[in-house]
Amino acid sequence: MNYAQILKSSFDPYFQAPLEIWEGFFRMCKVVSVKKGIIIKEYDATENYFYFIVEGAVGVFLWKENTPVCLDFAFDGQFCSDYMSILTGEPTPLYLMTLEDCLFLRMSKEKYNELTQMPIGKIIRLVAGEVSFVDKQRQQIELLTKTASQRYHLLLKQFPDIQNRVAQQHIASYLGITPQSLSRIKREN
């Protein structure tokens, strides 16, 4: 498997860097397999890694009133981490859990910081940060302006096979509804 080419292909829609840049990025990573249901970043801990998902799915969660709330998903070809913790160097109440068996390119926080001090690394970090910001703003706007049914259809459009990859309870949590409400929405459509 050509991991550098996979990295390049995933990032090309946002910024096209030569393959050798991604080969350098890959050399700073370790290939890691993690089974489904494993917490890769603990609640109230400091993030130590930056992940690129080659295969699999990860959920970002927060505890609210003794219930996990799903804040975000990441799938094949996407980066994930508790980025707030990476940036601040402090623990956060977020935790990350594999929702499928995953194959990651895992980079330590130290290597990530080293990479982002290089000129091309600064560009990659800026572009990734901007894409992430736009995605989160879009998610917040949809949560406040769309119905649960509309948000569900937007989620299916963004991730067409999510129903086969992620438990219904996590999808419902992400949408801000109960699993029963999600079942009703699915029946109605």
Results as ranks from 00 to 15, higher is better:
64 K>G: 05
40 I>Q: 00
21 I>L: 12
128 A>G: 06
109 K>H: 13
136 K>Q: 12
86 I>A: 05
186 K>P: 00
20 E>A: 10
87 L>V: 03
38 I>M: 09
137 Q>L: 13
72 D>V: 01
35 K>R: 11
13 P>V: 02
46 T>D: 07
73 F>S: 01
31 V>E: 14
47 E>Y: 03
80 C>H: 07
144 L>Q: 14
140 Q>F: 13
26 F>I: 07
127 V>L: 05
125 R>K: 15
44 D>K: 14
151 R>C: 06
28 M>K: 15
6 I>Q: 09
19 L>I: 14
64 K>T: 12
106 R>I: 02
170 H>W: 09
62 L>N: 09
28 M>H: 10
31 V>P: 06
9 S>T: 07
76 D>L: 04
160 P>H: 05
47 E>G: 08
163 Q>Y: 02
91 P>G: 10
20 E>I: 11
146 K>L: 15
116 T>W: 02
11 F>E: 00
162 I>M: 01
46 T>Q: 13
107 M>F: 06
51 Y>D: 05
126 L>C: 09
89 G>Q: 06
128 A>T: 07
50 F>E: 12
143 L>N: 12
33 S>E: 15
20 E>S: 12
150 Q>L: 08
141 I>C: 07
20 E>H: 12
187 R>S: 11
1 M>F: 12
36 K>G: 00
159 F>G: 01
175 L>C: 03
12 D>L: 01
88 T>H: 09
28 M>S: 15
176 G>E: 07
76 D>V: 02
144 L>H: 14
155 L>N: 03
57 A>H: 05
43 Y>S: 13
120 I>W: 12
144 L>V: 11
54 V>Q: 11
41 K>L: 01
95 Y>L: 07
95 Y>C: 05
17 A>K: 04
172 A>D: 04
112 Y>L: 13
11 F>D: 00
103 L>C: 09
118 M>V: 10
98 T>A: 07
35 K>T: 04
156 L>Q: 09
85 S>Y: 07
166 V>C: 05
109 K>T: 10
84 M>E: 15
188 E>F: 02
26 F>P: 00
14 Y>L: 02
20 E>W: 09
134 V>C: 08
182 L>S: 02
15 F>A: 08
1 M>N: 12
63 W>F: 13
132 S>W: 11
4 A>V: 03
170 H>I: 05
83 Y>G: 04
15 F>H: 10
54 V>M: 09
73 F>M: 04
166 V>S: 05
41 K>D: 05
111 K>Q: 14
68 P>F: 06
66 N>K: 15
23 E>D: 09
147 T>Y: 08
173 S>F: 07
42 E>A: 11
25 F>M: 07
139 Q>W: 08
116 T>G: 03
62 L>I: 13
73 F>A: 03
128 A>Q: 08
135 D>W: 09
152 Y>T: 06
